[in-house]
Write a protein that binds this DNA or RNA. Structure first.
Length: 211
DNA sequence: CGCACGATGCGCT
DNA sequence: GCGCATCGTGCGA
């Protein structure tokens, strides 16, 4: 089982599972480091792979963060160890996927805002059609938003608070092309903490949700 | 292309 | 009640 995943290759090189070491940094650094990392979901029908191209950090003392008012039932995963998923329900119909960062107890996470589909495009389309009023999708529309990528990747709410370092939904690194510059900008869709430049994306990547 | 708005359920004051 | 780390549609430029 483990060998099967570790031997996963792409035209860009061999995938390497992330370990705890990767998360021993501050959450802003983590948000930037996650660019180019791949999210791999192994399903019985096949494997879905998306490369992270856009992230946002949510920190301590950050009024835009769910953790701003302390620990609660909903945000508890943010206060757990880094490398786990924090998945929350919003706007009465959408789920968003985060990766917990920082030291345990800080209450920080990185929102994954967009993926570049690398593998399993047909099934991603199927998943999106099942979860949306829309039924046909351009490649660019599959994962260019936080709730869209959750649909496309088939991530369900019961993954909340589970590790992304092992198991069927996990993070795998891939060498990033050095030509890809990182852009740092303001976060999207928030009313508080708007001035902080806590959003990161790969410059000129067509799968980013917004310029 | 941009902007406005409705859908829809839950956490929190 | 209010607001929400969103999405899709519809309209106008």
């Amino acid at each position: 089982m483990r060998r099967y995943v570790n031997n996963l290759k792409s035209e860009k090189g061999r995938y390497i599972p992330l370990t705890k070491i990767f998360f021993q940094c501050d959450t802003l650094t983590l948000a930037e480091k996650l660019l180019g990392v791949c999210l791999v979901h192994r399903l019985k029908e096949g494997r879905l792979i998306g490369r992270i191209v856009e992230t946002e950090a949510y920190l301590q003392k950050d009024p835009a963060s769910h953790s701003f008012n302390g620990k609660s039932n909903r945000n508890a995963p943010m206060f757990g160890p880094p490398g786990r998923a924090y998945i929350y329900f919003t706007y009465g119909m959408h789920y968003c996927f985060n990766i917990v960062g920082g030291e345990k107890g800080r209450g920080e996470a990185v929102l994954i805002r967009a993926l570049e589909p690398l593998q399993g495009e047909a099934r991603m389309r199927k998943h999106r059609a099942q979860s949306s009023s829309k039924k046909t999708f351009q490649l660019k529309e599959l994962c260019n938003g936080p709730a869209k990528l959750v649909q496309a990747m088939g991530i369900s709410a019961d993954r909340n608070n589970t590790s992304l370092l092992s198991g069927s939904l996990r993070l795998m690194s891939l060498p990033r092309a050095s030509s890809e510059a990182v852009v740092r900008a303001r976060r999207i869709g928030i009313s508080k903490g708007q001035k902080h430049p806590y959003r990161f994306y790969l410059k000129d990547n067509p799968f980013v949700s917004k310029k």
